[in-house]
Amino acid sequence: MHFVTGGAFNGKSNWVKDFYQLEDTPHLWISAYRGAELPAGIVEWEKKDVVVLEGMELWLKSMAGTSLDVREQWQTFLQAWKSWERGAEGRMLILIGSDITKGIVPIDAEERKWRDAAGWAFQDTAAAADQVDLVWYGIRQKLK
């Protein structure tokens, strides 16, 4: 599992496409920015070995808008994704998330909840990932 983070519009997705040469690699790209729901099941991935989930922060926003314990829920996803990876040689999940945590603390309680959820989920994702990179305007800094 590879976690790629950094600020918005910092070139994270392009970096991932270059790094994994996705132009020439069969893969599945699921993007929250294009309105995709967070895939609850991973059955549909089985034909692809490389799966990219882009826009973690948006999925976390909709999760934070429910009464669910977001952190617990996210942990369940992480475990499911890790066991999918272990299911076959060469499987790789790449998670891309924009950092939304460095602004002023929002007045709105919902916004605060989202920000907290994102912070926790990013930490847990980094802990679960084999590799973590920070992309700063296209420049990669290896964190793990």
Partner: peptide
Amino acid sequence: NEVLNEPI
């Protein structure tokens, strides 16, 4: 300035 690390 770093301005891209909060919700847009």
